[in-house]
Write a protein that binds this DNA or RNA. Structure first.
Lengths: 199, 199
DNA sequence: GTCTATAGAGGGATAGAC
DNA sequence: GTCTATCCCTCTATAGAC
C-alpha cells in the first residue's frame, strides 16, 4: 500500500508536469513511464483510462487549492494580502514555465471526456468563488477597488492570469509581470506589497 | 490554379475551425480530409508537414488582423470605439465556441516546432503593438483610463480576453460577458457603448 | 492536384505471468 | 503492483498512378 500510494503519487506528479507543459493530448502514458522508470501497463493499473488520469489530476488541483485556502485562512491576512498570495501562487507557475491547468482543458475542450470537463468546471468554480469572496471582503473594508460585481471582477482576474501565463511563453516572463502589475493597479494595491508577493 | 487556391483556402478554413476547437494536437489531416471530402494526401500536397499547416494558419490570422486594422483605420473611429470593435471581434469567437488561436499554441508550446512558436510570437506582437497604440492614443485624448504603460495595459487586456474565451467553455458564455464588462469598467468606457459592440 | 496504397511510428489499452 | 507481450487504432508522411 505504501508502494502503491507512492507510485500513484509519482504518476500524478509527472503527469501534472507534462500536462501543464505539453497539454493533455500532448503527453502519453509512455512519457510518464519513461520518466518514472516503469512500464506503460503499471500506469494503466492505477489509472485505467487517460480520462481517469485527467480527472484525478484536476481533482488533485482542487484538493491542493482547498488546502491552500484553508491554511491561508489560519494566517488571518487582509484581503489585499490574500490576493497577493494568490498572485504569488500563479507566479510560481510562470517561473516553472507552466500554464494554468484550467487553460489546458479549455483549449482542448472538444477533445476531452465529459468527466474531465466537469472536474475542470468544478476547479474553475472553486477558484471563482474563493476570489470573489476575497474581493467582496476587500471592497467592504475599503482596501480593494472592485468595479462591478465581485464575481465579475474575480472572473476577469482569473482570465487575466490564465491568459498571462500563456502569453509569457511566447512573449517572455516579463509579460506576466506586466499582467500582475495591471492586476495590482486595477485593485489599487500598493507597489511595495506586490514586490514582496511576486518576488 | 483556381482550384488549387480554392482547395488550399478550404483546407485552411477547416483547419482553423478545428484548431480553435480541439487544439493543435487535437486535430488531424484525416479530420480535415473528411470534412472536405478529399484524401489525406491532398492536404499533404498543399502543406507537406503539420508544422507547415500551423505556420500558414497563424500567418493567415496575422494577415486578417492587419487587414482588419487597416479597414478600421479608414473609418476614423475614436480610440474607445476601436477598443469596442476589437472586443466585438473577440465576442464573435465566443459565440462560435472558439478560443484565441494564440492560446492554443501557448498551451501546447512544448509540443510545437520553432517555426510555429515564432509565428505565434509574431501574432502576439502584432496584437500587442496595435492595442498599446490605441490605448496610448485614448489616454492622450482623455477618453480612456489607462493605468501604467499602454503596453502593460494592452498585454493585460489581451490576456484577459484570451483567458475569458477559454473560461467561457467550462463556465458558460455569460462569463465572457463579465470579462468584457470588466474591461470596459477598467477603461472607463460607458455601458451604452459596450452594448452596441458586444451585441 | 488528387488519388490509392502503404510505410512507420506512436498512441491507448488489455491479458496473463510473476 | 509491476512486468512482458501484444492488439488495434490513429497519426504523419511518402511513393507512384492517374
Amino acid at each position: 500500500m505504501s508502494t502503491a500510494r507512492s507510485t500513484r503519487k509519482r504518476i500524478l506528479d509527472a503527469a501534472a508536469e507534462l500536462f501543464q507543459r505539453r497539454g493533455f493530448s500532448g503527453f502519453s502514458y509512455q512519457h510518464i513511464a519513461a520518466e518514472l522508470g516503469v512500464r506503460n501497463a503499471a500506469i494503466h493499473y492505477h489509472f485505467p483510462s487517460k480520462a481517469d488520469l485527467g480527472v484525478a489530476l484536476l481533482s488533485r488541483y482542487r484538493d491542493s487549492f482547498r488546502w491552500w485556502t484553508e491554511q491561508l485562512e489560519r494566517q488571518d491576512l487582509s484581503p489585499a494580502h490574500k490576493v497577493l498570495a494568490f498572485l504569488e501562487l500563479e507566479s510560481r507557475y510562470c517561473r516553472e514555465g507552466k500554464v494554468c491547468p484550467l487553460g489546458v482543458v479549455c483549449v482542448e475542450y472538444e477533445n476531452v471526456t465529459d468527466s474531465v470537463r466537469i472536474e475542470a468546471a468544478g476547479l474553475a468554480s472553486d477558484l471563482e468563488i474563493w476570489l470573489a469572496a476575497v474581493l467582496e471582503e476587500g471592497r467592504r473594508g475599503n482596501v480593494l477597488q472592485v468595479r462591478g460585481s465581485g464575481r465579475g471582477a474575480a472572473v476577469a482576474i482569473l482570465a487575466q492570469l490564465q491568459g498571462g501565463l500563456q502569453l509569457a511563453r511566447v512573449r517572455g516572463p516579463r509579460h506576466f509581470q506586466e499582467v500582475l502589475e495591471q492586476t495590482r493597479l486595477n485593485l489599487g494595491i500598493s507597489a511595495a506589497d506586490l514586490m514582496v508577493a511576486a518576488g
